[in-house]
Amino acid sequence: MNKERLAAFTDAVLAIIMTILVLELEKPKEVSLAGLWDLRANFFAYTLSFFWLGLMWATHHSHWQKVEKVSEKTVYTSLLMLFLASLFPYTTSLVASDFHNALAQAMYGIVILGISFSNMAISKSLKAINPDTHFGLLYNLTNRSIFIDLGIKAVGLIVSITVYPPAMVYAILIAMIVVGIDTVVHGEG
């Protein structure tokens, strides 16, 4: 498959998913500041999901130009990543509607971790067919930021299931910030 065709398909699916996220936002019972404040968990879950997907898309986009070839394995791992990403509106709405529910938070975290692992599989398949290319943050399996990110998310999932359900969304937010800082400080990306 042509790399541009795969990139365009990925862009289109992610754009649709990000659009569906906003459609899932609950409307306030009363249009007032108090009514909007009551939906703060809704807005937080939406914002976190939107920016997490947006940052993933931006990283894909900025490093995709370095890709010379894609393999069939890259196509299938990309489909897996998009399938998992398509669950974002659903899991985001579960978290938004019951922010302190451990199962909702766990499902959200499992989707996030699944996407992270599928991005690692995409990386591995791209590196196999483009061995001399450095892909930056998303595609560099030796990048310490990836393991920091996965570690924070894994701890968030465990804490979410066992002690404090909202730990998952907070772990994702913290991971985004820490990885961003780590990338700037260490110049990986």
Rank of each mutant, 00 (worst) to 15 (best):
M1V: 03
K3H: 07
R5H: 07
R5F: 06
L6H: 03
L6G: 01
L6R: 06
A8Y: 00
D11R: 11
D11V: 14
A12L: 11
A12N: 10
V13I: 14
L14H: 04
A15M: 09
A15S: 12
T19G: 14
T19V: 11
I20G: 05
V22K: 14
V22H: 13
L23R: 12
L23I: 13
L25C: 04
K29I: 08
K29E: 14
V31S: 14
A34H: 13
G35P: 04
L36G: 06
L36K: 01
D38M: 07
L39M: 01
A41R: 00
A41C: 00
F43D: 09
F43E: 08
F43V: 03
A45F: 02
Y46T: 13
Y46D: 11
T47Q: 01
L48G: 01
F50S: 01
F51L: 12
F51T: 06
W52V: 08
W52M: 07
L55D: 00
M56C: 09
W57R: 01
A58R: 07
T59Q: 11
T59C: 11
H60C: 05
S62Y: 15
H63Q: 14
H63W: 09
K66G: 07
S71F: 02
K73Y: 10
T74Q: 02
T77Y: 14
S78V: 04
S78N: 13
L79Q: 11
M81L: 11
L82N: 03
F83K: 10
S86K: 08
F88E: 04
Y90K: 08
T91C: 13
T92I: 06
S97R: 14
S97I: 01
D98W: 08
D98M: 07
D98S: 15
N101A: 06
L103C: 03
L103A: 10
L103Y: 09
Q105F: 12
A106F: 12
A106E: 12
M107P: 02
Y108M: 04
V111L: 11
I112M: 05
G114E: 04
S116Y: 15
F117T: 10
S118W: 04
N119G: 11
N119L: 15
M120D: 11
A121N: 03
S125Y: 00
S125Q: 02
L126G: 00
L126S: 04
A128I: 07
N130V: 00
N130D: 00
P131F: 04
P131V: 00
P131T: 00
D132S: 04
D132L: 05
D132A: 09
T133G: 06
H134Y: 12
F135P: 07
F135C: 06
N140S: 09
N140F: 01
L141T: 05
N143K: 07
R144T: 14
R144V: 15
R144K: 15
D149N: 12
D149K: 11
G151K: 10
K153G: 03
A154T: 15
L157K: 05
I158C: 10
I158D: 09
I158G: 12
V159W: 12
S160H: 10
I161F: 06
T162Y: 11
T162D: 12
T162H: 13
V163Y: 15
Y164V: 12
P165N: 03
P165Q: 00
P166S: 03
A167P: 00
A167N: 01
V169N: 14
Y170T: 07
A171G: 07
A175Y: 04
I177Y: 06
I177G: 05
G180S: 02
G180E: 04
G180W: 03
T183D: 03
V184P: 05
V185R: 15
H186N: 15
G187S: 07
G189N: 01
